[in-house]
Design a protein around this nucleic acid. Structure first.
Lengths: 118, 118
DNA sequence: TGCAATACCTTGAACCTCGAGGTATTGTGG
DNA sequence: CCACAATACCTCGAGGTTCAAGGTATTGCA
């Protein structure tokens, strides 16, 4: 079957990665996550609500996070918490991202041919 | 009008970035590029021909690279070279990527709240 | 009362990438 | 001589993401 190599869509899941990471540090709700990503990256990354909410629903469906409704300051919000499964998923995504970023960085900077010394 | 912010599809164009980078170091042909990306990243990144060829055609259409047919070892190949416009484009993409990677890295590692000291 | 901010959500279009398939040529083993 | 693998080019359809925009509802303030 032609050996399935290539990457599982290497770039995907960055929003998911960031969301899981934020939730691991602190329970948050969707609207807050949108702003947190923007402010913590100095607007380098800015995902819209149209990205965040579907990702949250998907993560919950997969059991990576759980939700509970809470009212704070007379505001009804849905807070999300990372489950242990979600924590594991975060670790995987995080490692995948690190490998990817390192590979690209290597291509961008270390251009010079090197001889492999045995 | 909600202020158009957000990123221009922040993840896209990684294949384009890598291809331009390779071509800046050395003229190459499509088939060679596919293998170069795989081998130089230790298969961490592996883009198929279905990605590379369309990108090459797009870059050429935009004047970022030029092509010329050459026969080497009785093999007919289309070699691509980066133009000055392409070089500029590479610089832009490269910087954008660096910013993005730094922002994500910051989110993944530097999680702890810090007080800004004035 | 009206408007901005908070807070949730969905949808359609646009864009990429993947995987598979198609053509043609060259070199090699049987 | 033939078949097959490797080289080398290319295109297409399916699937998955992201974006931008819009929709609903509540709260607080002028």
């Amino acid at each position: 079957m032609a050996a399935r190599d290539s990457n599982p869509n290497f770039m995907n899941g960055v929003p998911e990665l960031l969301i899981l990471r934020l939730l691991q540090q602190e329970d948050m709700y969707g609207y807050e996550i949108v702003q947190a990503i923007r402010s913590r990256t100095d607007a380098v990354i800015a995902v819209g609500e149209g990205v965040v909410y579907p990702v949250l629903h998907g993560l919950e469906r997969d059991g990576a996070i759980t939700s509970r409704r809470r009212t704070v300051n007379s505001r009804s919000r849905i807070y999300y918490s990372v489950t242990s499964a979600g924590s594991h998923r975060l670790a995987d995504l995080s490692e995948a991202w690190t490998n990817l970023a390192a590979a690209i960085q290597e291509m961008l900077t270390g251009g010079q041919r090197e001889q492999v010394i045995l």
